[in-house]
Nucleic acid binder design. Structure first.
Lengths: 212, 212
DNA sequence: AGGCCGGGCATTGTATACAACGCTGGGGTG
DNA sequence: CACCCCAGCGTTGTATACAATGCCCGGCCT
């Protein structure tokens, strides 16, 4: 059975990530409880968990608030991603098995097909697949703590927006990165995989900072 | 005012880190509530927080359990430390100001003095200072997320034990690492600082795996 | 008029009662 | 004797009531 606390957590989390709950807005336990049809207890638990993950801020005796992201924060996040995922790619190149690489290839190919068209729904689908791709690499690294650290850092409710912001040329370029990364992992070239991953992520940061 | 939930969290956390609550032992909400003189509500909150930080494991409908550490876990933790703190040292070398470096020097010198003697209480004091030293470097990196990621990874209730396990020669060697690291940061040599930090941490892992 | 004080209000913090779930052990059955 | 089933029990999960805290606003004093 899925507990009410988990349900509330999921609702709040996806609500924050897709900006249903806007950055900076206050979240009252009582209001959320009535909104979601349960008592304050599970809501409290969910808010505490989201706070531990850095998605909301808990002001003592004042309640919870959805965190806002400055451009400094964005830079911090992307540099952390480059560090963690670069390392993850190197480990993945050393330890990923054939099935996992095949899955990676599959995702990358699916993305390449979608990226030829430019519709907005395709872009959103791409954002989902992109998250899945990067996650698959980290899973392949076989480091539980790396995966956890990454999950905590990458809480930016901006995946869709970022993916929509790429020009067609930039999007194509990013697909090439993915293919290159898969090749590096397949060949077991850890250094190359790490370099490609770092460049891939830092280029996203550059596009973000210049475009925004 | 400090809430009961925070008090319980602090008690449990320090109890776990100094092994008052042994690895693998079960923590019943009701028992803890009576032990600490409050209701289950703050206990629940504290346990959830500790779970998010990776110090306890929450078995659904079965309660909480203090996490145990396999040698694979230890290796994972130290490799993550090498990654995060190596990066932190590089950033620190670039951005740390004079006061912060002076503070680092101060801690390193204090540790060097303590390390000449071999008494157990000195070793415990050294463990505390060591934590402070490594934390000061990360604070100097000015990356909030790096600091947070590190705090979550480094939850090993073994600091004292590790520090006691060093031979006098190994301890001296580690003091040299610290001095070398301070120098690298002072000179602003990011690559050198990162290398020294990584080697420093990975050598600790080696000593642990060989000695244990 | 400006600042300080105090009470009301919204909100979180805590306690407690009860429901739901899962394990465990004892008795029955093949 | 081995296996299964079910009832009892301990535990967590949830709801609700009440206490405590901090903010806000109106009135009073200077």
């Amino acid at each position: 059975m899925v507990t009410a606390a988990v349900r509330v957590y999921d609702e709040l989390r996806s609500g924050i990530l897709d900006s249903t709950f806007e950055a900076g807005s206050r979240l009252s336990e009582d209001r959320l409880a009535r909104l979601l049809g349960c008592s304050r207890t599970p809501v409290r638990e969910a808010l505490r968990r989201l706070s531990a993950e850095g998605l909301v801020e808990l002001l003592p005796n004042r309640g919870a608030q959805v965190v806002s992201w400055s451009s400094d924060d964005l830079e911090d996040v992307f540099r952390m991603r480059a560090l963690l995922e670069g390392h993850g790619a190197a480990l993945a190149a050393e330890t990923m098995d054939t099935d996992e690489v095949a899955r990676l290839h599959e995702i990358a190919d699916g993305m390449a097909q979608l990226s030829s068209d430019g519709s907005q729904s395709d872009r959103d689908e791409l954002a989902t697949l992109d998250v899945e791709f990067h996650r698959a690499v980290l899973v392949g690294s076989k480091s539980r703590r790396l995966l956890e650290a990454h999950a905590r850092v990458v809480q930016v409710p901006l995946h869709q927006r970022v993916m929509r912001s790429y020009s067609p040329a930039q999007l194509q370029q990013r697909m090439v990165h993915h293919q290159e990364l898969v090749r590096a992992i397949q060949l077991g070239d850890a250094d190359w995989a790490a370099s490609v991953m770092r460049a891939h992520i830092l280029s996203a940061l550059n596009i973000l900072l210049e475009g925004g």
